[in-house]
Design a protein around this nucleic acid. Structure first.
Lengths: 332, 332
DNA sequence: ATCGTTGACGTCAACGTTGACGCCAACGTT
DNA sequence: AACGTTGGCGTCAACGTTGACGTCAACGAT
C-alpha cells in the first residue's frame, strides 16, 4: 500500500523532467523517440497512472459526465443510462449518476454536487418542471443536455421524441380498428407543458372525426398500479369505453390487468396502446401494441449533443427530434 | 460566466485568511462566533461552493463511490443502483456508475478509471470470475464491497444472499407440490464457483429423495430468450419434465412462454420457480412463484459495509449473508 | 560568420484546498 | 511577576498536474 507513482517518480527514473513525462503521457510532442520509449517503459514498470483529480484541478476538465434521472426503477430508464454510460466510456468519460425521485430540491442538490465535482457536462431526464435551475447552470457555463423537454438557454441542448406524432399514430391505429370511445391515461408527475403525446392523440381524434368524438382522461402514477387505478377512473367516466392510450407501457399493462379483472377482453372489448416499448411488453399476454421509442438512439444523440456542447460551447443548436413508430401486437 | 468564488474571494471580502474560511466551511472550530457569522454571510453572497476537486487532491477523499455493474438492463440491477445511489447521497457521496457487460477487460478498465478519479470505495456486482483484480486493488488500499460473491482479501467486504437456501426452498416447494422430474436452468455467465442456488436445489433434492432423483440442467443467457432456449434444452433431456427452477425471473418467464408455446400448462403440467422477484413477476400470468431477494436491504448493507471499510480500513469483517424467502404465487 | 528557426527539453507558477506549525494576546495559576 | 495554557487566527507548503515561457544546441540559409 505504498504511494502511487507520480510524474516525478517516472521522471526521476528516466532522468528527465516531469514536464517531459507529461508531454509523453498526453501525446503532446516535443520529445525524441528514444525519450518517449524510455518514459513509456518507466511508466509501465512503475505502473504509473495519471491522477485525474490533479489534472482536473488545472485543466477544469474532469473527464466525467453526470446523469440526472428521475427514478431508475422506471423501466425506460436503465436502457438510457446504460447507453449513455457506454457511449461516455467510449469517449473516455466516466459517468456520475444520481436520481431525484422527481423532487426539484433533490435535483438542485444533485446539480450542485455535480458542479462542485467539475463534471464536464450533464444529461438531465426528466427535467421536472423546474427549468430555471438548468438555465442558471447553463449560463454559468455547464453544458447540459435535456432529454424529453424543450429548454431554450445558453449551453443547453435538447433531445426528444416526436411524442405528438406518437399520440397521432396511436389515435389512428385505434380509429382504424373501429374504436370510437377513447380514454387517455396520463401521468400525474408529467407537468401540463409536457403532455405532448396526449395532445397529439386528441388532436388526431378531432382532425379525423370532428370534435364531437369523446375522449376522457384520467391521471395516474406511471406504474402498473397506476394503470389499474387509471382504468377504473376512465371506466367511471365512460362505462362503454373501447380504446385506451396509456402514458407508458407499465400503465398500459396495469390497464389491461384491470380490464381483465373486470371481465373485459383485450383487445376484443377494449383495445390498449402503450408507449415506450419496454422489453416486457413483448412477453405479456396479450402482447402490447405500443409506440416504440428507440432508447439506444436517444442515448447516442444525447451523448453526441453533449460532446458537441463541451467542444463548442455557447453555440446554439436546434433540438433533436427523434422519430417514433407504432408497433402493432395483440392488444390493439 | 465569471469565475467561481474561491476561499480567497470569501477571505478577501471578510478580511480574514483563507485558512479561517476553510475552518468555518469544515466546522473545524478555532474561530469566534462573529467571524463565523461574517464568513457565512460572505459565502452566501458570493455563492461560494467548495471545490471538491481541489479538496480531493489534498485529502485523498473525493466523496465519491463507484458502482461496477454487469448490465444495467438486468431488471435486478436498477433497484440496487437506485438504492445505493440514494444511500450514498444521504452520506454526502456521489455515485459513479459503469457497467462491464460481464467482460473482465472492461471491468479492469472501469476500476482503473475509478481509481484514477480517487473514488473512496467501490461496490462491485457481479464480480465476474476475475477476483484477482479486486484483491489487487484492495491491497492497494481501495475499499471494495463485493455483492453476491465471496472474496477474501484486505479491504474487501462481501454482501450476499443465502442462495443455497433459496435453492433448497425452491426444491422443497416443488417436491411438496408432487413434482419429481426436475430441471434447472442455469446462466452461462455465472461461473461454476458461484452456482449456489443450483447446488442448494440439487442438494435439497438428494437429501430428501436420495440421489436417484433425476434433475437435468441447461445453460442459457439470463434473459427471457435464454429461458425459452433453456426450456427447449431441458425438454430434450427429459421430455416428461414437471418442475423447473430458473436462474432468475426473466429466465423463468421465458421458460413459461416456451412451455405455453409447446402446449403445456403452467403450473398444471409444469411448475416453474424463479429467482429475484422482479416487479413484473407479479403481473404476468400465471404470476410467478419465486425466491425473493430483498434488493433494498442489499443496497443498505452494501453501502453500510462500504462506509465501515472507508472509516476503518484493513479491519477484517465477516461476510453479510442476507436471508431469502419463497413467494408462492401461481406458477408453482 | 551571422542569424533565424526548430527540436528537445527544463523551470516556474498556478489550480483551490488543507495539514502542520507558528504567533500573539488574554487569561488563570503559583 | 513569571509562567503555562488557550483561543483565534495567519503563514507556508504541499497535493500532482499542466500552461506559459525560457534555454540551448544543432542546423540551414544568407
Amino acid at each position: 500500500m505504498d504511494r502511487e507513482a507520480t510524474l516525478h517518480d517516472v521522471a526521476g527514473k528516466v532522468g528527465v523532467s516531469p514536464r517531459t513525462v507529461s508531454r509523453v503521457v498526453n501525446d503532446e510532442g516535443g520529445y525524441s523517440p528514444e525519450t518517449r520509449k524510455k518514459v513509456l517503459a518507466a511508466i509501465e514498470e512503475l505502473r504509473y497512472r495519471p491522477n485525474m483529480v490533479a489534472r482536473a484541478l488545472i485543466t477544469k476538465r474532469s473527464g466525467t459526465v453526470g446523469l440526472v434521472g428521475g427514478d431508475m426503477t422506471d423501466p425506460f430508464f436503465p436502457a438510457l443510462a446504460e447507453g449513455i454510460q457506454h457511449r461516455a466510456r467510449e469517449a473516455g468519460q466516466t459517468m456520475f449518476f444520481a436520481s431525484t425521485g422527481s423532487d426539484p430540491d433533490r435535483q438542485a442538490e444533485v446539480l450542485r454536487s455535480f458542479w462542485a465535482r467539475a463534471v464536464d457536462g450533464v444529461i438531465v431526464f426528466p427535467a421536472l418542471d423546474s427549468i430555471d435551475q438548468l438555465t442558471d447552470y447553463g449560463r454559468r457555463g455547464l453544458p447540459i443536455v435535456v432529454v424529453d423537454d424543450l429548454v431554450e438557454a445558453p449551453n443547453v441542448a435538447c433531445v426528444l421524441f416526436d411524442l405528438p406524432e406518437g399520440g397521432r399514430l396511436a389515435a389512428q391505429h385505434l380509429l382504424s380498428a373501429g374504436r370510437r370511445r377513447m380514454g387517455v391515461i396520463s401521468a400525474t408527475v408529467s407537468p401540463p407543458r409536457r403532455r405532448h403525446r396526449e395532445r397529439g392523440f386528441v388532436a388526431a381524434l378531432t382532425e379525423t372525426q370532428g370534435d364531437h368524438l369523446p375522449a376522457v382522461t384520467a391521471e395516474a402514477d406511471p406504474t402498473v398500479r397506476g394503470g389499474e387505478a387509471g382504468f377504473a377512473e376512465l371506466l367511471s367516466l365512460m362505462p362503454d369505453l373501447d380504446g385506451i392510450f396509456a402514458y407508458n407501457d407499465l400503465v398500459a399493462i396495469g390497464a389491461m390487468r384491470a380490464a381483465a379483472a373486470s371481465g373485459r377482453r383485450v383487445p376484443d372489448d377494449i383495445a390498449v396502446v402503450g408507449c415506450d416499448d419496454i422489453e416486457m411488453s413483448t412477453y405479456i399476454t396479450p402482447a402490447l401494441t405500443t409506440i416504440r421509442l428507440d432508447r439506444g438512439r436517444l442515448s447516442n444523440e444525447a451523448v453526441a449533443a453533449l460532446g458537441d456542447l463541451i467542444d463548442a460551447p455557447a453555440q446554439r443548436r436546434p433540438p433533436v427530434v427523434l422519430p417514433v413508430e407504432l408497433v402493432a401486437r395483440e392488444s390493439a
